[in-house]
């Protein structure tokens, strides 16, 4: 679509939507949000880009083929479940790395749930973009 208004607005909007998707991804840890919805939001940014600037520009803006993105997302998600191997727990058990504080007082911690969510984010983004690009070419 060759529209000046859309193209100009897209430049700003795509960046905003992508940042918002990261926000949703991280927010999903304790509140509504999460990897799936964040992945969809990020995919919508690239879809908007594709509508405004064309398929080729969107693909080159993404830099990585969406299929690879999806596969690496699944890999990250699957590996996050394997982290339990090191602590001797059952597969897919939650693993927590506390940076500050302890279990009773709260504080900041990193968990494999977050890694899983990042994997889901990439998988959803890759899968949806694969589909959008395939449909656009058909």
């Amino acid at each position: 679509m060759n529209s000046l208004i859309l193209q100009t607005a897209t430049r700003v909007l795509v960046a905003l939507i992508l940042v918002f998707s990261i926000y949703m991804l991280l927010r999903g840890h304790n509140y509504p949000g999460g990897g799936f919805i964040a992945g969809l939001i990020a995919a919508s940014a690239f879809a908007l880009f594709a509508i405004a600037w064309g398929m080729e520009s969107a693909q080159s803006a993404l830099r990585i083929p969406p299929g690879n993105l999806a596969a690496s997302g699944v890999l990250i998600a699957a590996l996050s479940g394997m982290l339990a191997l090191f602590s001797g727990d059952a597969p897919f058990s939650g693993q927590w790395l506390r940076l500050t504080g302890d279990k009773t007082t709260g504080g900041i911690s990193i968990s494999n749930v977050l890694i899983f969510d990042i994997g889901v984010y990439l998988a959803v983004l890759g899968a949806v973009l694969t589909l959008i690009f395939a449909l656009e070419e058909a």
């Binding site: 299929g67 690879n68 596969a71 699944v74 890999l75 699957a78 394997m82 191997l85 059952a90 597969p91």
Partner: peptide
Amino acid sequence: MSWLLALPFLIPIFTALATFP
């Protein structure tokens, strides 16, 4: 023990991920 029972689907999934690239 619980890992052994998970392996029948973990192995194919990781093989799938290895063959993809």
